[in-house]
Design a protein around this nucleic acid. Structure first.
Lengths: 339, 339
DNA sequence: CCAATGTCTGAAAGCGCTTACATCAATTCT
DNA sequence: AGAATTGATGTAAGCGCTTTCAGACATTGG
C-alpha cells in the first residue's frame, strides 16, 4: 500500500532531461542520441521505473492486452486453447483479459462489450459460433461490430467480415476420412454423436454424411444423435434408445467415453464389435480401457497460427492476409478401433 | 476502426450540465438531484456512452480488474478453479487478467509484476506455493511485496503476510480420514503417490503418516512415492518398481487412474485386491472402469469463499477478517474402494 | 564564413476523467 | 427578517503520459 509512485517527471529530473526524452527512450523512439538513451536507461533501471499504463493508455488508447473470449473454460478443449493462446501471447508481451461468456448469444455480446471497453488491442473468440445451414444460426453481427474497433480472431468459428480472421480445423475431411476407414473395415451402421450445433459439429456431420453417400451406404437418421455432453448421459441414453450400431464417431472424447461405457456395461467388445472414435485427443481418452482412438485437432497449432496472425496484424500492420486458415486434423489410433 | 469517440464533455453538453455532474451520475454519487440524474442518464443511454477506462484509471488508479495467476491452466484442477473464480468475479462486475506462470519461481515473479503493472484491484494466486517443512521451500517474498500494493488472495497455498488472505482445503484431515478407513478395512500396505512438493501435497502426506502412526502401522518409506503427473508414467513406474501394496492414495485423479491402469494390466482386481482413492474428484475419474473414488476438494466453494472475501476487502474495506479459511473435503465413493 | 540542412531536445498542449473547492439557491433556525 | 445551514451544481486542478512544434546546436556545402 505504498504511495510513493515514481513517475516520468522523477526520471526526467534524475537524468537531467525532459519528460519528452524519457518518453522517447521508454518507447524506443529512434530520435534519441545513444548517449542520452544510456543515461536515461541507467536511471530507469536503477529506480525500477515502469510507466503508468493508464496514462499511456490515455494517450495511445491501448494497453498491450488481448481479450480472450471463450464460452467456458471448464472443458478440456477450451482450457487447452486458453493455455496455448495465453502462452504464445505472453511470449510477445501481451496480457490476456479472460471472459467466459457461456454458450448463449446474450452472454457473448455482454462479455464482448465488457472486454472492448477495456480497450484491448485485439479480440480472440474461441469456438461456439453456430453454423448457418438451415439449423440453428447464430447472429454474428456483434462480432463484426467489435471488428470495427479492433481486429478479431476466431478459433474454430464461422464468421466472416472485414477485420475478422478465422483459424479452423478441417473437420469435414477428418470425419470423412475416418468414416471411410470404418466403412472399408466393414462397419455399416455408424453412430454419429454430437453435443451441439456448433460450427465444428456441423462440419463433422457433413464429413460423416458425405462419406456414407460416397460409399452408397444409406443414411439413417436414427444413427445421428444429439447428446448431452457428459459420459453418463451418453451411456444412459444409448442404453435406453435401442438402436443397433457397429461403430461410433463422437464430436468429443467425453461422448466417446460415454459410448465406451455403454459397450462395456452391455458386454459388447470394443473394438471387435464396435469401433469408437473420439475427437480432440484429450487426456480423458487415456483414462478409459481400452484407450480411445481420437481425432487430434492440433489445438496448439491452431493457437500458434492465430497468435502469429494477430501479431502480424496489430504490430506489423500487415494487410491482405488470408481471412481464413485451415489446419488439418490427425487420427490418433489407440485401442477402440481395429484399423 | 471508428474514431468518433464520445466523451464526458459531449454528454455534459447534451444534458446541459457540467462534466462533474456527469461524472457523479456515472459513479452513482448521491449528491445529485433525482431530476438531473434522470436527465443525464437519458442522454447516456441514448448515445450509449461508456467512460474511458484509462482516464478513469488515471484518476482512480484502478480498473475494476482482478489479476488471476495460476501455474498452468491445462490441468483439470486449475481450469476449474479459474472457471469458478472468473464466474464469481464477473458477477460483481470484475474482469480477470489471466497469467499462467509455470511452476518455477522466476515465472511467477515475472507474471506477478506484469499483472501488477496493470494496476489490478487485487491478485488471486492459485496453488503451487511450495511448503516449508524441510523439503523444498519456496520463496514467497514476492507475494508479500505484491501485497504492499494490492490485497492478495491465495487459493491452496502456504503464504502468510499482511494483506494476504488464504483459502485452503483441509487436506490433512481428508487424507487422514481416508487412510483410517482403509486401515479399518484391513489395508496395511497403503501406497501414497504425489506429484510434487506443493503445499497441498505435503499436507496430504502429513495426514497419511499421522493415520499410520495413530494405528501403529509401521511407516514404510518405499510406499511413499513421488511420481510424474501422467497416467502412463504412473502405470509404468508401478510396473517396474516391484513394491507390494493393497491400497493407493493419490494426490490427484490422473495419478490414481495410472494406478488403476497398472492394476488392470496386471490383472489385479480393484477394489477387491487393491483400493484406490484419487483427489479432486475430476471428470477423468468417471472415464475409467471401475469409476474412481475420489476426495472432492470443493473447489467451487473455495473459489466462492475467496471471491467473497476479496469483495469484502476491496469494496467494503473490511478490516480484521480471517487471514486463513479452511474448507473441508469430502470423500466421493465410487467403484475403486470397498468401503 | 554564412546559409542551409539535419539531429536532438524541451516546452506545452492535450488525452478523458475525478474531485476538492467554490458558488449559488433553497431551507431552516433564532 | 436576517443569519446560518444544507444541498446541488459548476470550476478548475490535476492524474502521468505522448507528441507536435519549435528551438538549439552541430554539420555540411558553396
Amino acid at each position: 500500500m505504498k504511495k510513493e509512485v515514481i513517475n516520468i517527471y522523477d526520471i526526467a529530473e534524475m537524468a537531467k532531461v525532459s519528460i519528452a526524452t524519457v518518453s522517447r527512450v521508454v518507447n524506443g523512439s529512434d530520435k534519441v542520441s545513444e548517449k542520452t538513451r544510456k543515461k536515461v536507461m541507467a536511471v530507469i533501471e536503477e529506480v525500477g521505473y515502469t510507466p503508468n499504463v493508464f496514462a499511456q493508455g490515455l494517450g495511445l488508447n491501448t494497453m498491450h492486452t488481448i481479450g480472450l473470449l471463450v464460452p467456458t473454460i471448464s472443458d478440456l478443449y477450451m482450457s487447452s486453447a486458453v493455455y496455448y493462446l495465453e502462452e504464445k501471447l505472453a511470449k510477445y508481451g501481451y496480457d490476456c483479459i479472460l471472459g467466459c461468456s457461456g454458450f448463449e448469444l446474450e452472454g457473448k455480446q455482454r462479455q464482448t462489450d465488457m472486454i472492448l471497453s477495456k480497450h484491448v488491442d485485439a479480440l480472440i473468440l474461441v469456438g461456439s459460433t453456430y453454423a448457418g445451414n438451415g439449423e440453428r444460426v447464430e447472429d454474428t453481427d456483434y462480432i463484426r461490430e467489435a471488428a470495427e474497433q479492433v481486429p478479431v480472431f476466431v478459433v474454430n468459428g464461422n464468421v466472416q467480415g472485414e477485420n475478422v480472421f478465422v483459424t479452423v480445423n478441417d473437420d469435414v475431411k477428418a470425419v470423412y476420412d475416418v468414416t471411410v476407414q470404418m466403412i472399408e473395415h466393414g462397419h455399416e451402421r455408424i453412430l454419429f454423436l454430437t453435443d451441439s450445433q456448433s460450427y465444428s459439429a456441423i462440419k463433422k456431420r457433413m464429413g460423416y454424411e458425405k462419406a456414407l453417400e460416397d460409399h452408397r451406404i444409406p443414411f439413417r437418421p436414427e444413427l445421428e444423435m444429439h447428446v448431452e455432453n457428459t459420459v453418463h448421459a451418453v451411456r444412459d441414453l444409448l442404453q435406453n434408445c435401442n438402436v443397433a450400431f457397429d461403430a461410433v464417431i463422437a464430436s468429443n472424447d467425453e461422448i466417446a467415453v460415454g459410448a465406451l461405457k455403454y459397450a462395456s456395461k452391455k458386454g459388447i467388445l470394443v473394438p471387435d464389435e464396435i469401433a469408437i472414435v473420439g475427437y480432440n485427443n484429450s487426456s480423458i481418452g487415456i483414462a478409459c480401457e481400452p484407450e480411445l482412438t481420437s481425432i487430434d485437432n492440433h489445438i496448439e497449432q491452431i493457437c500458434h497460427e492465430t497468435v502469429e496472425r494477430l501479431i502480424a496484424v496489430i504490430e506489423r500492420k500487415e494487410k491482405n492476409l488470408e481471412h481464413k486458415i485451415v489446419i488439418p486434423c490427425e487420427l490418433v489410433k489407440r485401442g477402440t478401433t481395429d484399423f
